[in-house]
Design a protein around this nucleic acid. Structure first.
Lengths: 347, 347
DNA sequence: TTGTATGCGTTATCAA
DNA sequence: TTGATAACGCATACAA
């Protein structure tokens, strides 16, 4: 059995409660005894048992991370390591640890959240995604458990602290950029429509088209998974149309990579035949062929800020709901071209 | 206050201990009372408090992850998301959660480990790296705490369960491949020499040179950080030499990416002027220009297996030390060329 | 300034 | 088959 507060107490000739107070650096303990107790701790190699402390305290100094699906898939998209990087940095600053449950299906993930919350394994939660009709959010709200979401909650957005980009605007700008290059057949390749981010970006895209009196065509809207294969599927669908698009808004770099690959295999050149813009500005957008014009959404900041505000909620439960919009910026590289300069049009 | 075992007991008209036994599905409880208790649990929405259970049990069903440095840097290299993916998959299968502390310096990381262990926050630990003279390993060994390391422990390798590649062999093969292409001026760009993986690969590289009677030159050995910038620095150093290498063994894709970038900026072509092989076979090696010839070290398996064996240690403490070598495979792409076919030699 | 007693929510050991 | 009761290791209200 490890050394406990009692062993220290015995050695230092004080009561266990005194040791406890020394650990908490309680000002009502004399410097002398503090010194004596500290020496005893050092001598015995004492370290507090966090579990016991958590039980007495009702606090764990840990943040729970909830991902949209199995780590298996999630970690293939650089978005997640990057948000976690942000969360971790802030967590470290505030001295919190990170806790991840490992569910695979939606149900398992929900179960994982319940275990974290009811099991009191974490003090707060960061949701790394936002989807419509999410039972996780409902559960957290009902239980008044501290949490923040990265992305915009589908409903009750003004009563839930969240950190998001202005995805509507970003997508609108990106589409306008393409329109500005003379494109009028622009397709949208997004992730699942269950994700609020997809909805927002689709809306922005639609708005831009409408503003320019371009037609919004259902067959130009494709939804796939946020993985490379997703991009591959999208291209196949779109190029099978009788009048395929000349430009693509892709909502994720990793999908865009799939798009690029597939296009290359088909002998279609980017940007000579088709222009592509994407989101996330991950390292992939720099190294792809051609380098991708992509929206930098400051993923790291997203994570940092989200962590900051759960911790704030934990430490000051009466605080106010926050809503933070992290700025975005279009980074132009070589995947877009004026339509008139494109060599030929795919038919 | 949440609903506890006592509330359930009251509602079901039994003692708390009975409820506890029902949770554990103790066979000595009659089916009737079990049913009654279960209904009460459902009615109250009872969920066990994991912290309390951990305290009573001395077990947490959680695995601690220890990274080599701040998450900040670590998550920029795709190796780590990928191992975690593997670990997470196995952890999920065995119903364990994951716990990460967030230290930045070596000391903070060590402190984090101590907190995990003494604080009884986790049942076992996976070390995601292996460096020489690592106090973390010493500490874990001294405390007889279950852990596995990904990589080869610097010392006592046969008393520490670990999962590794045969890095010596892999590096030797890779170097021989380059020699086979006619190269005789081959440089080695590795990570920190504190990392055992770097040492092993350097040794393999050296052996291959020696076998072919090529000279081993100190100025052909460069160590940098496992990041893109690392590759950039390496190239600068090597190309400043009077007789620069015609081929590079780079021990990490992300560094190789930096190498490729820098070379491109300098107007030096890969593979026409310089051949490059690297390790990890991450997605970057597929999308880089040119696509990188890289060693697939099966990172996912590394993680999976490491997790599997900590859990085994946890559940069967008397088990035997394991040492697993995960196979590797050279994946040839377009970053290497026979020396005689290279257009010119950089001087 | 310090000690005593009790509780945090479980599990486990004895009895019954 | 079930119920008291004592741990588990720490924090804290109350006493001293």
């Amino acid at each position: 059995m490890a050394v406990t507060i009692k062993d220290v107490a015995k050695l230092a000739n004080v009561a266990p409660s005194t040791v406890s107070r020394v650990i908490a650096d309680n000002p009502r303990i004399s410097e002398e005894t503090k010194e004596r107790v500290r020496e005893a701790m050092k001598e015995l190699g004492y370290h507090p048992n966090f579990i016991a402390r958590s039980l007495a305290n009702q606090s764990t100094q840990a943040l729970g991370l909830v991902m949209p699906s199995s780590a298996d898939k999630v970690f293939q998209n650089p978005f997640f390591p990057e948000v976690i990087r942000g969360i971790s940095t802030m967590a470290h600053e505030k001295d919190y640890a990170l806790y991840m449950s490992t569910g695979e299906t939606e149900d398992e993930i929900f179960e994982g959240v319940v275990k974290m919350v009811q099991g009191k394994r974490v003090d707060g939660i960061v949701l790394l995604y936002s989807r419509i009709d999410d039972e996780v959010i409902n559960y957290l709200v009902e239980n008044k458990f501290p949490f923040t979401v990265i992305g915009k909650p589908f409903k009750d957005a003004d009563s839930i602290t969240h950190v998001d980009n202005d995805n509507y605007l970003a997508s609108k700008e990106v589409t306008e950029y393409l329109i500005g290059l003379g494109h009028d057949r622009i397709a949208f390749v997004g992730g699942s429509l269950n994700l609020v981010v997809t909805i927002d970006r689709l809306l922005g895209y639609e708005k831009a088209l409408r503003n320019s009196n371009l037609v919004y065509r259902d067959d130009y809207i494709v939804q796939e998974e946020f993985l490379k294969e997703g991009g591959r599927e999208a291209v196949k669908e779109l190029l099978a149309l009788t009048d395929p698009p000349t430009a693509l808004v892709v909502t994720d770099d990793i999908m865009a990579l799939g798009v690029l690959n597939t296009l290359a295999e088909m002998g279609i050149s980017v940007p000579d035949d088709i222009s592509v813009v994407s989101f996330n500005n991950s390292m992939f957008s720099e190294v792809s062929r051609p380098p991708l014009t992509s929206v930098n959404i400051n993923i790291f900041d997203l994570g940092c800020t989200a962590a900051k505000y759960v911790i704030e909620q934990i430490e000051n439960p009466s605080g106010h709901v926050k809503r933070v919009i992290v700025p975005h910026k279009l980074v132009k590289r070589q995947s877009c071209k004026e339509k008139s300069l494109q060599l030929k049009t795919v038919e």
